[in-house]
Simulated assay, not measured.
Amino acid sequence: MNMRTARPTSTRRLTSLTAAAVAVVASLGLTACGSSGADVATQASGIVIEDPWVKEADSGMTAAFGVLRNDSDTEAVVVSATSPSTSSMELHEMAPHDDGDMVMRAKKGGVTIPAGGTHTLDPGADHLMLMDVTKPIKAGDTVTVTLTFADKSTMKFTAPARTFAGANEDYQGDDKSGTDMSEMGDE
């Protein structure tokens, strides 16, 4: 075999190996791209809200309720909420005050929805507090809420407003003074 014949064979093998290597790298790159896109599970991707609703209010505070269902195999933690219907929102809970009375206050650590479980947002319990509605929310209106989770993923839902005479709890704000929840938009 002379050198002229050997060179093209080596070149063909090198070219074939290079082509194979490029194909492998390209397929790995596509796989990596696919795994970092929509296929990656986020805390928000496993959550569904059932029967969401908001208490109607002319002004002041009101709240959003419903059942958060986690269809994933890992817990999800809601750390904040926003809505165009309010200037600010807080995650709230009912807890005993120093005097033993139940008061509403900001929920530290967020709202945890266990893997494969639910977390209920109810009047007199955990709920999403719209701190200062920007315009009246009437029964039948819809309110959009965006939840942000511990992994920074988000979930948006809409909730119809309902007439509800309850939810007149005391609010223990940052100043530690109770605020009468009748400010939540009496009907």
Rank of each mutant, 00 (worst) to 15 (best):
M184I: 03
D101K: 11
G110H: 00
N168W: 03
D58C: 02
D58M: 04
S36P: 00
S16N: 10
P136K: 10
I49D: 02
M129G: 06
L68W: 04
V25F: 14
F149V: 07
S87T: 15
A139F: 03
F164Q: 08
A44E: 11
A26C: 13
M1P: 02
V79T: 02
V103Y: 09
E183F: 06
M131S: 10
A20N: 09
T142N: 10
L28C: 13
S87R: 10
A20H: 07
H97D: 15
S87V: 13
H97M: 06
A63T: 08
A6Q: 10
A41T: 12
G100M: 13
T144A: 15
A106G: 11
V145T: 15
S10M: 14
F157M: 09
P84M: 05
A139C: 03
R12S: 13
A161V: 14
V77C: 04
G116H: 06
C33P: 01
D98A: 14
G34A: 15
V77H: 04
V79M: 01
S72P: 02
A159C: 06
L130I: 09
S85F: 03
S59N: 11
P96M: 07
E169K: 00
T142D: 12
A21G: 15
T142R: 05
D122E: 12
T86G: 04
G37L: 12
N2V: 03
M89N: 08
D51K: 11
S153Y: 01
N70Y: 06
V40I: 12
T15W: 09
H127P: 01
M89V: 14
T154V: 08
V67C: 01
D174M: 05
T154H: 04
E75T: 11
T9L: 15
T148I: 02
D141H: 05
G100E: 11
P123I: 07
T146M: 05
D58I: 02
V24T: 14
T163G: 07
